[in-house]
Amino acid sequence: MKRKGFRFYLRIYFKILAQDLKSKMSYRADFIISTVGMIFTNIAGFVSFWIMFRNFPSISGYSYHEMLFLYGFSLLSVTPTQCMLDNNWNLRQQVYSGDFIKYCFRPINLFFYYESEIFDAKGLGQLAFGIGTLVYAWAKLGLAVTPLAVLKLLVFLAGASFVMAALQTAAAASCFWIENSFYVLDLAFRFRDYAKYPITIFSPVFRFIFTYIIPIAFIAYYPGMMVLRPSEVSLLSWLSPLIGAVFFYLAYRFWMYGASKFNSTGS
C-alpha cells in the first residue's frame, strides 16, 4: 500500500467532487433554483448594505468603498467553508441517528472523508459575487495592483478562510456532546454577519469578544486591513494567517476527538 499523502487526498477529493457535481446537475431544476436563490441572497445582502450607506456616508472613518472592500473580503473568506464543509450541517442528524458510524470504516482520514461527501456548488455564486465586489472596491479605492499586493491578499484571505472554517467546524462538533447543537451552529453562522464590519465600530466589550472569544474579526477586518490600510495595521493583522491555521487545526482536533467520543457511547 502506498503512503497516503496530500496528492492522494487531492485526487480523491476531485474525483468525489466531479461525481457529486455530475449527480447534482442531473437535478437541473434543483440546481438552478438553489443557484438563483443564492444570488438573490447575496443581492439582498448587498442592497441592505447599500441602503445603509445612502444614509451614512462613512462609518467610524471608513468610507463606503472601504466597507465594500471588507464586505467582499468576508464573502470570499466564507466561501471555502460554504463549499467544502457544508456537510457539517448534517452532522447533528447523522450523529443523532447513529448513521455517522458508516464513515468510520474507510482507510482514510475521517474528517476528510466526511466533508468530501458534499460539495455545495451554490457557494460558487458567492465566490463570483465576492470577487466582483472586491475588484470593484479595489479599483474605486485606487489601491495599487502589484504582485505583492495580490500575494498579500491571497495569503491573508487564506488565513481568514481558516478562521471561518474553524468556527463552523468547532460549532458543528459540539453535536458530539450536546443534543440540541443546531443552535450552536446557527449562532456561529449568524455571527459571521458581523464579520464584514470594521471592529472599531463595536463597543470595547464586543471588540474583545470578537477578537479573542468568537474571533470573527479575523474573517475580514484584521486580514483585510493588511491590504486596505497597510500603514496602520496592528500585530493581530500580521498574525492573522497563523492564528487562522492554528485555530483551524484546533477545531479539527476537537472534531476528531468528538468523533472518537461518539463511538464510545455505544448505540
Binding site: 497516503k4 447513529g98 458508516k102 470504516f105 474507510r106 482507510p107
Partner: peptide, 15 residues
Amino acid sequence: RTRNAQNIGVVFGQR
C-alpha cells in the same frame, strides 16, 4: 484504524 480498515470490509445492516 486506517491501516486496519484496508484489510476489512463492513456492512452495517440498513446503513
